[in-house]
């Protein structure tokens, strides 16, 4: 009888965990290469767990495998929102090793990086279909947001009915233009921030709690 009770308790615990409001949602951080996705993921992870997600770099395609930080609990207004952050490789339609040669990289390393980046894009696209329940779409506000990749990804996200938060990153840079991003995607809310400097992160967390809580 004791065994039966134990079993029942453990099943109840599992069901509670499965169906509780606290179940973390998997939030994918998407965007083109070098938009600051990993910097943002690290910022969020450090702010709430103390750990980083992965190395950041000014060289594109530093993140070539999706990295996940689970159970990031964000407290907003007395409530706790628990999310799994999935930092994804930058999505692009073209990967060229010559791009990396400008960053003092040997050709062999550049070619390997290029191959891994391509695998990373395939993986990111796969997880977008299979695994994420919400998207934080990070854009470099110093660059033109009207690109094929951005249009296509936002379109896919909308077709999936996933909640999406558009972040206009790198507001610490001079030629940043948040308005340009707002104009590009007027149907979505755009939040300015500097993930590097930590500017406007409070609003970002408010919106994360609102969108994904």
């Amino acid at each position: 009888m004791g065994l039966f009770t134990d079993l029942k308790d453990s099943i109840a615990r599992v069901t509670d965990k499965l169906f509780s409001a606290q179940e973390p949602k998997r939030i994918g951080i998407y965007g083109p290469p070098n938009a600051g996705k990993t910097t943002l993921a690290n910022r969020i992870a450090r702010d709430w767990t103390g750990d980083a997600v992965g190395p950041e770099s000014h060289i594109p395609h530093e993140t070539r495998r999706a990295r996940r930080k689970e159970n990031v609990e964000i407290e907003r207004n007395g409530n706790t929102v628990s999310i799994d952050i999935v930092d994804t490789p930058g999505v692009t339609t073209k990967v060229d090793y010559e791009e990396f040669l400008d960053h003092d990289m040997e050709k062999e390393d550049a070619v390997r990086r290029s191959r891994e980046a391509t695998e990373g894009v395939a993986e990111a696209m796969h997880w977008l279909r299979e695994d994420v329940e919400g998207v934080i779409y990070v854009l470099d506000s110093t660059t033109d947001p009207f690109t094929q990749v951005n249009t296509m990804l936002i379109g896919i996200i909308e077709s999936q009915d996933l909640p999406v938060l558009i972040l206009a990153n790198k507001t610490d840079l001079e030629d940043s233009s948040v308005q340009r991003i707002r104009n590009a995607f007027p149907q979505h809310e755009t939040i300015p921030l500097s993930a590097l400097e930590g500017d406007n992160m409070d609003e970002v967390y408010d919106k994360i709690a609102e969108y994904f809580g």
């Binding site: 999505v91 692009t92 339609t93 073209k94 990967v95 060229d96 090793y97 010559e98 050709k107 550049a110 070619v111 290029s114 191959r115 391509t118 695998e119 894009v121 395939a122 993986e123 696209m125 796969h126 977008l128 279909r129 990749v149 296509m152 990804l153 896919i156």
Partner: peptide, 23 residues
Amino acid sequence: PGQYELNLMELYEREEYIISLQE
């Protein structure tokens, strides 16, 4: 080698996904 063009829609719509490109 080292230069790739990706069809994002195709990658997105595929059930299977490429996990490793060999040289």
